[in-house]
Amino acid sequence: MREITFSEALGEAMYEEMTRNPTIFTYGEDIAKQGGIFGAYKPLLGKFSDRIIDTPISEEVIFGSALGAALAGMRPVAEFHFADFIFTGMTAVTNQIMKIRYMTGGQAKLPLVLRGPDGISKSAAAQHSESIETIFMHVPGIKVIIPSTPYDMKGLFKTALRSDDPVICFEHKLLYKMKGPVPEEEYYIPFGVADVKRKGKDVTVVTTSRMVHESLKAAEVLLKEDIDVEVIDLRTLIPLDKKTVIDSVKKTHHLVVAHETWRKGGWGAEVASVVQEEAFDYLDAPILRVGARNVHIPFSPPLQDFVVPDHKDVEKAVKKVLGEV
C-alpha cells in the first residue's frame, strides 16, 4: 500500500470532502497562502480559493463564527493554530458551541469542526506545547478525535466532515511528517471505536496520539524481557470505547494509561475510573498512569525531556504494574 504523511492524510480528507460538499469551508490563521504553519493544508492550495480563508488573529470570532456559519447552513472547519490558543477564544467553544444544541432543546444542528496542532515539538516552551484534550472530554458537548497515524487521521477526519455534531480534532505536531499506509480507495473510521495497535497478553496500555508510538516502542523493548504488551489507541475520547478497553483488561488483568498531557486529572484518570468501576475484579494490580509531570512544558531540551513522558516511562509503568520493579 502507498504511504503518505499524516499531514497529507488530513489534506486528502479535506480535498475529497470539499470536492463532494460545497458547504464545507475552512479558515484560520496562516492557512490560505501558507497552507497552515505545519503545512497540513498544502494539498488544498490553489483549489477552492473562496473556501479557504486567512483570518485575523481573533480566536473568539474564529470559533464563534463557526457556530454561526453552521447554524446558517454551512459546514465550517476552523483551525486553532496552536491548541494553547484555544483558551483565547475558549468561551466561544465551551459557552457557545458546546452548549447551544442542548440549551435550545435540540433545535440546532452543528456540523462544524475545530482542528489544529497540539503537543510538544522541539523546544516550543509552555505556550506552544500543551495537550488540552482532556478539557473537551470533561465538558459535555463536543466529540473529541485525536488520531495517531495517517490512516486514522484521514478516516476519522472524513467522518468528522460528515458529522452533524461539533468535533474537535487534535493533531500532534510531531506526527505531521510521519508516513504510514493509506489506501487509495475511500474509507471512513467511525467514532468510538478504539484500535488495538498491538495485541498482547500481559499488560494493557491505553493511549492516544504521539504516545501510541512511544507505547509501541516500549512494547518492542519489553518483548525482549518476555513481557507482552497490548497497545490500545482510543482514537476518540468522546465517544469513548469502553468495551475494547474492558475486554482487554479482562484478558491481561493489568492496565497502564499513557498520555502526553498532565498525569494529574488527565483523561487517563477517567479511563482508570471506568475500569475500576466496571472491571475491578479482573485487575491483579492497581492501575498506573503515565503523563506529563505537574509543571508547564519547559524550554530547554533536557527539561522538556524530563517533564514529558516517552517510551521509557511506559516501560517503567508496565514493569511496575507487573510488580517487577
Binding site: 469551508f25 470570532v61 457556530l67 456559519a69 447554524l71 446558517a72 447552513g73 465550517p76
Partner: peptide
C-alpha cells in the same frame, strides 16, 4: 457577536 459574524460568512459564501 461572533455567532452573527459566522452567519454573515455563511451568507456571503452562499
Amino acid at each position: 457577536l461572533p455567532i452573527a459574524s459566522g452567519a454573515g460568512m455563511a451568507i456571503k459564501l452562499k
